[in-house]
Amino acid sequence: MRGDELLDLARSPLVLLLITLGGYQAGRWLQRRTGGHALAQPVLPAIAAAGIAITVLDVDYADYRSATELIAFWLGPATVALAIPLHRQADRLKGFVVPLLVAIVAGAVTSIVTAVLIARALGADEQLEKTLSAKAATTPVAIALTQSLGGIPPLAAVFAISIGIVSAITAPAVLNLLRIRDRRARGLAVGAVSHGIGASRMLREDETEGAFAGLAMGLSALAISLLVPVLALVLF
């Protein structure tokens, strides 16, 4: 097989899909080998493998996104499946609904306002401020909101994913340092900030924490999608 034929094969959708899945499996192996260490997030090797592949093979991101559409499709059912542990923990919602909703709204407002004001204080332009405003939402929501505001959607996706990874790594340790022991509050805090990545981390820690992280992920995305257009009238 000639070199150009090998290159075309390496750029094929099947190979790109296998590279992505292989990177994630490598991350899971590393996670098991380290005993579930906070820094061993499976998403990181998957991102590294995909980034190296599309750079070395000179693959356009749109082509890579199309090749891995199958993974994106299954993210939907996987997210919905987070409702299963919440259903098992439904009795833990008693007396917690009002504090939960207040915390979600307060957290969303704080996330939006602080991101914009800090970016402004550091000299960012308005387009970057708009891009950062939806950083705590899930990636699809952040992209859609940023596009409607006139920000930079691809950069919004980078911020959302990066913040999700960093929060999933650091948040449990921060909560321990602050002596926050309530499983519901811990899950709520992490899910509101680091969405799917954080929810999966908390689900490994404890089923109650994972259930409330999944709930917080959905409610935060809803709150941010409603609040960003309103706060944008004041902030921009």
Rank of each mutant, 00 (worst) to 15 (best):
V234I: 15
G198R: 10
A221S: 15
D182P: 05
A49Q: 10
S200A: 15
S200F: 05
D4A: 14
G218Q: 09
V234D: 13
H87W: 14
L235C: 07
A53T: 10
L7H: 02
P13A: 09
L100V: 05
L39M: 09
G123V: 06
V230T: 14
D182S: 15
P99E: 10
Y61C: 11
A136K: 00
L132W: 01
L93S: 01
V105M: 07
R204M: 04
E209D: 13
T34V: 11
P85N: 09
V193A: 14
V15N: 05
L57E: 09
S194K: 06
A232P: 02
T146F: 08
R120Q: 11
L9V: 03
P45Q: 04
L178R: 00
A199R: 01
L100E: 00
P85T: 12
G198K: 11
I118C: 02
W74K: 01
F236V: 11
A173H: 08
E209S: 13
T34Y: 10
A83C: 11
L93D: 03
A136D: 02
R179D: 13
F96Q: 15
A221Q: 03
W74I: 15
L14H: 05
V56T: 03
A106L: 14
I118Y: 00
L128A: 05
A168I: 01
T110R: 00
D58M: 02
A72Y: 08
T138S: 13
I52R: 12
I180L: 14
I197E: 06
V97W: 08
L215S: 11
A160R: 05
I84G: 10
G36A: 12
F96C: 04
L7N: 01
I47S: 04
L227D: 01
L21I: 14
V116C: 06
I47Q: 06
L100K: 00
V56E: 03
